[in-house]
Amino acid sequence: MNLRIATEEDVSQLARLLEILFSQEEEFTPDAALQEAGLRAIIADPRIGEILLAEEDGRIIGMVSLLYTVSTALGAKVALLEDMIVDPSRRDEGIGSKLLDHALRISRERGCARITLLTDASNVDAHRFYERFGFAKSTMIPMRLALR
């Protein structure tokens, strides 16, 4: 298995994984055109973020996105971890753990002071997974306003 940063050539395979992810999340609906546009925007500008992927024999089997911003509270660059997904046929092989380890290492290398992520409130397995890596529930709650 190879871990690397995604390129434009990976977009269609990454969109396939996002379709799986957004089909199982409560708040999102898959839309290939929108997902491909988002992937291309991230890939085109490393200041926005990076998409890390796991591949084997030319097939992408997992991905995670790191999006970058600045925290005024910390006075430093921080990351948002999004779109963590492993192909369902490859789960329970340690791929997600390797991807997350890689994302944590990359975030540290990029000078990030914190990583924030969101999971569905009902996804207890995801909570346990992230807690094993040191993530903790925050007293802050997410709120959203759709602008389009």
Rank of each mutant, 00 (worst) to 15 (best):
E55I: 04
L104H: 06
R16Q: 15
D10G: 13
Y68K: 04
D31G: 06
A79D: 03
L34W: 03
D45N: 15
G38A: 08
H102A: 11
R90V: 04
K98D: 09
E8T: 15
G49W: 02
L74K: 13
A41R: 13
D83M: 04
M84Q: 02
L21M: 12
R40I: 09
Q13H: 13
N2V: 03
I60F: 05
L74H: 13
I60K: 06
S23E: 12
L52M: 10
V86K: 02
A44W: 01
L81F: 04
A54M: 05
H102R: 11
A15M: 07
E50W: 05
F28L: 13
V86I: 10
D101Q: 13
V86G: 02
R59I: 08
G75A: 10
E27L: 15
A76Y: 10
E36G: 10
S71P: 09
L14N: 03
D57G: 13
N2L: 07
L14V: 12
L74M: 14
D10F: 09
L53T: 01
A76K: 14
M63L: 12
I20S: 10
S12G: 10
I60G: 04
D83C: 10
G62P: 03
L80G: 07
A15Y: 00
D31M: 08
L34K: 10
V78T: 11
D10Q: 14
L53N: 01
G58H: 06
L80F: 14
Y68H: 05
L81S: 01
L80H: 12
L39E: 01
K98F: 06
I51R: 00
V78C: 10
E27A: 15
R47M: 13
V86S: 01
L39F: 08
E19M: 07
P30D: 09
G38N: 06
G58F: 02
A33S: 14
E56W: 08
E82V: 12
F22L: 09
L18V: 09
L3D: 02
Q13C: 12
E25G: 03
P30T: 08
L80T: 10
R4T: 05
A6W: 01
I51A: 03
A32V: 13
G62F: 03
E50P: 04
M84K: 01
T7Y: 02
N2F: 02
P46M: 11
R105H: 13
R40H: 12
A44D: 11
A6K: 01
V11R: 04
A6M: 06
L18E: 05
V78F: 06
G96P: 04
V70R: 12
A6D: 02
E56Q: 15
R105A: 15
L52E: 01
M84S: 06
G38F: 03
L3I: 11
M84D: 04
I42N: 03
I20D: 10
L104E: 07
T29N: 11
I43W: 00
L18H: 05
G38V: 03
E50I: 05
D57K: 14
Y68F: 15
Q35K: 07
I5S: 01
L100K: 00
G75E: 11
A15N: 04
G94K: 07
A103K: 00
S97T: 11
T29Q: 15
